[in-house]
Write a protein that binds this DNA or RNA. Structure first.
Length: 369
RNA sequence: UGUCCCAUGGUGUAAUGGUAGCACAGCAGAUUUUGGUUCUGUUAGUCUGGGUUCGAAUCCUUGUGGGACAA
């Protein structure tokens, strides 16, 4: 039996995970720190020839100060092979991935739970702005109180197994309160550090990252055509992986009105452009669906979020196969993007999610009906 | 070959003798735990030479380039 007092804390070295450690101690838990080394981005090393990224050093220093053990889990190879490879494959297939969604379940929680077992910790905790609530014996993710920081969208893939052992101590706090809390506990410099210490592999522009990781990408794909909604050629583009649905900036084409990417055809390397109103959709199909309680999907207040930090929109869903849903929007939905997560909410609560399909899949379903 | 028309930022256009403006594109910043969106700011132009005029994108003329018609 694992110790209910011991908590494995995923520490990124930043203000959020520091607050988590402080709070857990205050609440009587015994934290054990772990920092996952996933990707060595150059910007994470402030000193030349330093053998560990800054955030690991910072996490270890904090654990020392607070008097609990700290471990480093080097998963660089696995991260490259799973999360980064999936990211690249998705773009090469003309889709727009959510690496954070992939990373959370298939990566962070997987390794955190393994490690928690080894280190005799019943709980794992992270600095995500989200809550875990239980109803009728089912654990649900709920939005964090600070709606501007809410991260529930990225967490939809966590299942009962993960949630039953997860603590999100920051879910009831705002970013400002977290910073105040950390300052009150004598870590002013942590609170003042610039945002985004989170481990992330794309430094600036994901296009540069693609070129770096797939050196022959331009040879493999190359230039293609922009066309209008009638299929007339408008100009040329640099290759479909460099674009995403709803994109306006960087198209380098002057049509007299703002143009948006409305469709990507990776087979023909053709990108369709249109006006703002052409980006709206009324339906989508969603695969890899995961729902804790199927009844939730027929709730009248059901809404779906089709990208991070956008308003959830009202919808009706029906099941069209194993782990596949057809979603009808009852409100305006803009730039439905294949590869992005569709996360279903009832008010604050995440009741499920899935991955948005290519439009061809939607067509196939409609034809079959 | 002849006649006519056109030429303004990167693109499309406005300004009929009086401060060259708009849209799109570009760039920069803000925002941001994916990509995108959004907001703010900003660069940049009268095809060439000559003339008329206080003053020329605008009128006259030379050349260059493009288009239409005629043959």
């Amino acid at each position: 039996m694992l110790s209910e007092k011991r908590v494995l804390v995923g520490m990124s070295g930043g203000v959020d995970s520091s607050a988590v450690c402080l709070m857990l101690i205050e609440q009587g838990y015994q934290p054990v720190g772990v920092t996952m080394r996933m990707w060595d981005a150059p910007s994470k090393f402030s000193i030349y020839n330093q053998d560990e990224p800054d955030y690991i050093v910072e996490a270890r220093v904090l654990a020392q100060k607070l008097g609990f053990p700290h471990h480093v889990l080097d998963v660089r190879r696995e991260f490259r092979a799973e999360v980064v490879q999936d990211f690249l494959d998705e773009y090469m297939g003309g889709r727009t991935p959510n690496p954070c969604v992939m990373c959370n379940l298939f990566f962070k929680w997987k390794y955190l739970l393994e490690m928690a077992d080894k280190l005799d910790c019943h709980w794992i905790a992270t600095g995500h702005y989200a809550k875990v609530k239980e109803e009728n014996g089912i654990k649900y993710i709920e939005q964090g109180v600070d709606s501007t920081k809410d991260q529930s969208y990225f967490l939809w893939r966590l299942g009962q197994k993960e949630l039953s052992r997860t603590l999100f101590p920051l879910g009831g706090l705002s970013k400002v309160e977290v910073k105040d809390y950390v300052i009150r506990h004598g870590f002013r410099e942590k609170a003042q550090k610039s945002e985004s210490m989170e481990v992330c592999f794309v430094e600036k522009d994901y296009r540069d990252f693609l070129r770096e990781q797939i050196p022959d990408i331009d040879h493999r794909i190359g230039e293609g055509s922009f066309v209008d909604t009638q299929g007339r050629r408008l100009g040329k583009h640099k290759g479909f992986p460099y674009y995403t649905i709803g994109q306006r900036k960087g198209l380098e084409i002057a049509l007299g009105y703002p143009a948006f990417v409305i469709k990507i055809n990776p087979q023909k390397n053709i990108i369709m452009l249109g006006r703002k109103e052409d980006v709206f959709a009324c339906q989508m199909s969603v695969s890899q669906v995961q729902v804790a309680n199927l009844y939730d999907l027929s709730h009248p207040e059901l809404k779906v979020r089709i990208r991070y930090r956008s308003q959830p929109i009202s919808c009706r869903v029906r099941s069209v196969g194993e782990h596949q849903l057809l979603v009808d929007f009852t409100e305006e939905a803009s730039a439905v993007t294949p590869g992005q997560s569709a996360v279903f909410y009832i008010n604050e609560r995440v009741v499920g999610g899935g991955i948005i399909d290519n439009p061809s899949e939607l067509k196939r379903i409609l034809k079959k009906e």
